[in-house]
Nucleic acid binder design. Structure first.
Lengths: 342, 342
DNA sequence: TTGAAAGCGCTAACAG
DNA sequence: CTGTTAGCGCTTTCAA
């Protein structure tokens, strides 16, 4: 078995753009131009190139392109919990806009863990992502902000307007107030609050909204009716509800800062034999699609989830396109959706 | 304002690895070695480099590294619907394993659209992702398989064992049979099936399991009790249930191939005044965390969601590490979880 | 309108 | 153990 002689060997046709160039009888520069849709190429030449691309089945190596253009066309999305329907919907909004602008989404579930978030954030410095959207707790974000106001990122849903990072969200203070005022209007006086972990800024804002609405109504807020849970799981809501009901003077209404929590609350209430809304009213927050399906259908504060994500992506893209221009913070409207749980 | 004279200008210290090399007084090769943890570097040298890295705040440019090593260290995950809790949990499993092996996840929501899936799949050819995990309908996957058995991808949850692509999933036929046999054992004879769109292979398999279980019990399956819906939304389940109940001889039990559907079914039943499980029993599929929370708690077939994702990622990683080795298909165990809806 | 050539920042032979 | 050097495959001046 001899090695093929020199004469028999095919000149190995070059790979990549060079192969296409050779096949089309043009230079690599020209191939690159038609690939990138530059206009300064004679139609006939363009056709030759396109034909060569088609027959060779060539695909551009974006690894090379990315190095050359110094961009990854990836947007990093950091979210505390992909499994939460609220975040899932926001993510969809982000993805839609990203795609629309030729970007893909690198999704990272941080579990709201500062350590993980920091290391993900480092992806920006390593140029693996061009920008980031952060849905994580404000405490985490502040750390990021100190470290690098210079890196392109925006805050979504959870934000601190004072740190100087572009953001999109709702007015959590007013939204929570709206919920409480509704409960008050329905005659409730003993209103409990089941809140997220306090390192979420939105949790603090919603609590303040709750507190102030109560105070404005001339009602004292019993501390025993205020609970913080460290996860938005259904289970967390269920056990919080049970705990609330075990008190000597239990609340007649419960406001939970997340629909998932509220759904858990309803389940928990049921398990301790209370009926909703007759024995105790329940209001949620977010208006995930499930809210309308459970029994009883959930009264809640609707957030424009999709739009929140879309806006975050747009803000980031804008910042990427024009790094020096100031990107504003934007507040989207919430609304109270009255169903049957309260 | 004069331009700084030649004498005043700082020699611009080189960026990147070269800067670190200069600062540490070694060559770029050495820097690269310590950065990549190669062992053949004298400790003293290593320390010098590390110090230079630390003081300069240098971060490797992964765009360059990726080009050089010809890998993106990204895993593409194509899923029909990120919003579905079932998929969300599978995704978490994938992400966990990917991270653990130094990969990140590119998440793409295909909406089960063949066109979108095809274009995402092209990311592999363009070297933007090293491999892909596909949760999309088998019809779509078959198209991919024909086009390129050569590209590194695996099927997850939804698979066709005959196309020769590595996969992980459960035995859908048996699982559906188990659900139906349980309903039969509870005395039901009129059992409806609310199924996914038929282009999902799992839908066909579950239907066959349903049909055969009925036949084995000597019961004819009325076609009017078989419905296919084109989305797994709660709403789809709700309207399907209402439709079923409007028939002259409505079923006494409903088996839905997804928990989200089943939850919608329960809501739909309630809206037409039927009680679950007294008037009609409902069984679901997946055992998402929500299943235990709704009223009544859902009887369902549990899938090991997390493990499904983890296994898919491992399979893919294995295929990536050893392209010529045959990667097997793997079937994970399901189980019937009896709660109160049936 | 087209081509030649210079890198993007890194890794990995290869040589010493 | 360390340094020199040749690319990875593309885009983009600069000239023609």
């Amino acid at each position: 078995m001899d090695k093929p002689s020199q004469r028999d060997m095919q000149a190995p046709s070059p790979e990549g753009i060079a192969g296409v160039a050779e096949q089309a009888g043009v230079s690599v520069a020209t191939v690159s131009r038609v690939l990138n849709g530059h206009s300064n190429v004679r139609p006939a030449t363009r056709d030759k190139v396109l034909a060569a691309v088609a027959t060779s089945g060539y695909r551009v190596n974006e690894l090379a392109r990315n190095l050359r253009t110094a961009e990854s066309r990836l947007l990093l999305t950091m979210v505390p919990d992909v499994g939460n329907p609220f975040y899932a919907e926001v993510i969809r909004g982000i993805d839609a806009i990203a795609q629309q602008h030729g970007y893909f989404m690198l999704l990272c579930d941080t579990g709201a863990d500062p350590g993980r978030e920091r290391s993900y954030f480092d992806l920006l410095r390593r140029r693996r992502a061009d920008g980031a959207i952060c849905l994580d707790p404000a405490t985490v974000q502040q750390a990021l902000a100190e470290e690098s106001n210079t890196l392109p990122w925006v805050a979504c849903c959870e934000f601190d307007s004072s740190v100087g990072v572009p953001y999109v969200g709702i007015d959590n203070y007013r939204a929570a107030g709206d919920a409480v005022r509704y409960l008050l209007a329905r005659g409730h006086r003993r209103i409990a609050l089941i809140n997220s972990d306090d390192h979420y800024l939105y949790a603090q804002q919603r609590q303040q909204g709750y507190l102030d609405a109560l105070r404005d109504a001339g009602i004292g807020a019993d501390e025993r009716w205020r609970l913080n849970v460290n996860s938005l799981d259904y289970e967390a809501g269920a056990s919080a509800a049970a705990l609330l009901m075990s008190q000597p003077e239990p609340p007649t209404a419960i406001f939970a800062v997340s629909d998932t929590l509220a759904i858990g609350v309803i389940a928990g209430l049921r398990s301790v034999g209370r009926r909703v809304p007759d024995d105790v009213a329940v209001a949620g927050f977010d208006d995930i699609s499930l809210a309308a399906q459970i029994d009883p259908p959930l009264t809640t504060i609707a957030q424009p989830m999709r739009e929140l994500g879309e806006t975050a992506a747009r803000l980031l893209l804008q910042r990427l396109a024009n790094p020096r221009e100031n990107v504003p913070g934007v507040l989207l409207a919430h609304r109270l959706v009255v169903r049957q749980s309260a």
